[in-house]
Computed example of a mutant assay.
Amino acid sequence: MLNTAITPFKSKLNSPLTKKGITVLQINLGKRCNLACTHCHVEAGPKRTEELSPEICQQLIELINRFPEIKIVDLTGGAPEMNYGFKPLVEAARRMDKQVIVRSNLTIYFEDGFGDLPEYFTQHHVRVVASLPCYLADNVDKMRGNGVFDSSIQALQWLNKLGYGKESDLILDLVYNPQLPISQKFSLAPEQSNLERNYKMFLQEHFSIIFNNLFTITNLPVGRTKMHLERKKLYANYLQFLELHFNSGTVEHLMCRDELSIDYTGNVYDCDFNQMMNLPARTNNGETLTVAKLLEAGSLDLINEVQTAAYCYGCTAGCGSSCGGALV
């Protein structure tokens, strides 16, 4: 790949990437985490201290209470469970009968002070979306740290004992990420339904674990993934690879179109990746938004056009990629 010029993502589309009605509120509660995974686009870790403030937490609860069109409250981090406001937001959303998703690293349940989480999730019917980037121990530990695979297996067995993966209102999903590339032999995630079948067979046979869905997510060149690619001098070539695999059929289903992504300071973005790259959502007149401004306006639908960048090719390559896995 000699020519590494990237077509601006906006130019690839036949029309502007517009917002639909907002139904998903994804909240990044902060960067505190008990792990420091090599592929983490948030760059979270044990030494990070940034987290939600009581003031922003209260504004978010008001947002959840006031807007019935929000169907899903998706809590992420860091380890969302470690950051201020986690339980108040879970309980506020459940009181309003919204689905709550927690993006859990599973190992947090074994840290001091967090051993109540599996039972807490069960009590509040929280949907657990858990990172397990492979069903083989060596691959997981390389990406996430020594011993993470074994802890993850114990956590999944614990959730299964409580009914997760078995009862209709206790949903347990797993997330697959490809290994980070170390050469120009780039690859997209395997076909989702086939990989899900392989995961289910292996985990059932070896660990008696069952789960609901597997989500395949492309490594977007953001955060630590971007740093890794730059260190290996692969960043521009990886972007070109993603562009070469652009699939226009994914655009209709992009997660940025019906969600608002909120950071721990209350700023509003179109998606989590834009949040990490500090590309804020904008109104028609170019104004950036905060939770306070949404409350003041009495509307979630103040954004017409999604802000895009070259890394958007990651969400539109092949079968597409989103927080809910493949798009087509």
Rank of each mutant, 00 (worst) to 15 (best):
residue 137 A to L: 07
residue 68 P to K: 13
residue 190 P to N: 11
residue 192 Q to I: 04
residue 134 C to V: 04
residue 67 F to A: 06
residue 157 Q to I: 08
residue 184 Q to P: 02
residue 72 I to N: 02
residue 98 K to Q: 10
residue 71 K to N: 12
residue 76 T to V: 15
residue 143 M to D: 00
residue 111 E to S: 02
residue 123 Q to H: 12
residue 69 E to R: 02
residue 112 D to P: 03
residue 86 F to H: 00
residue 115 G to R: 05
residue 169 D to F: 01
residue 102 V to W: 08
residue 81 E to R: 05
residue 103 R to M: 11
residue 177 N to C: 04
residue 113 G to C: 07
residue 75 L to M: 06
residue 149 F to S: 03
residue 155 A to M: 05
residue 107 T to S: 15
residue 80 P to K: 07
residue 52 L to Q: 04
residue 115 G to D: 13
residue 69 E to M: 09
residue 52 L to T: 08
residue 56 I to C: 02
residue 153 I to P: 03
residue 172 L to I: 08
residue 196 E to N: 07
residue 138 D to E: 10
residue 165 G to N: 04
residue 63 L to T: 11
residue 177 N to G: 01
residue 167 E to A: 13
residue 190 P to Q: 11
residue 140 V to I: 03
residue 53 S to T: 14
residue 187 S to Y: 14
residue 108 I to M: 03
residue 146 N to Q: 15
residue 167 E to Q: 15
residue 168 S to F: 08
residue 129 V to D: 00
residue 58 Q to P: 00
residue 193 S to C: 06
residue 174 L to P: 00
residue 187 S to N: 05
residue 55 E to N: 10
residue 181 P to V: 05
residue 105 N to E: 08
residue 150 D to G: 01
residue 130 A to M: 12
residue 156 L to V: 13
residue 107 T to I: 13
residue 79 A to W: 03
residue 64 I to F: 07
residue 71 K to L: 15
residue 85 G to A: 10
residue 177 N to Q: 11
residue 131 S to G: 13
residue 123 Q to S: 10
residue 153 I to W: 13
residue 162 L to T: 09
residue 151 S to N: 11
residue 97 D to R: 15
residue 188 L to K: 02
residue 85 G to P: 01
residue 141 D to Y: 09
residue 141 D to G: 02
residue 61 I to V: 14
residue 80 P to S: 14
residue 142 K to A: 12
residue 88 P to R: 07
residue 179 Q to Y: 12
residue 196 E to P: 01
residue 60 L to R: 03
residue 154 Q to G: 04
residue 63 L to Q: 03
residue 68 P to D: 15
residue 99 Q to P: 00
residue 160 N to A: 11
residue 155 A to E: 03
residue 145 G to E: 11
residue 67 F to M: 05
residue 72 I to T: 14
residue 96 M to Q: 15
residue 172 L to A: 05
residue 186 F to I: 01
residue 56 I to T: 08
residue 92 A to F: 10
residue 64 I to E: 03
residue 87 K to H: 06
residue 145 G to I: 14
residue 168 S to E: 14
residue 185 K to P: 00
residue 71 K to P: 05
residue 106 L to T: 07
residue 190 P to F: 06
residue 54 P to A: 14
residue 80 P to M: 11
residue 64 I to Y: 01
residue 139 N to C: 09
residue 148 V to T: 13
residue 194 N to V: 12
residue 101 I to W: 01
residue 91 E to I: 09
residue 71 K to Q: 15
residue 90 V to L: 01
residue 174 L to N: 00
residue 129 V to W: 00
residue 134 C to S: 15
residue 114 F to H: 06
residue 77 G to P: 01
residue 155 A to H: 00
residue 90 V to W: 02
residue 193 S to N: 09
residue 173 D to M: 07
residue 130 A to T: 08
residue 77 G to E: 07
residue 147 G to P: 04
residue 152 S to A: 13
residue 71 K to I: 10
residue 73 V to H: 02
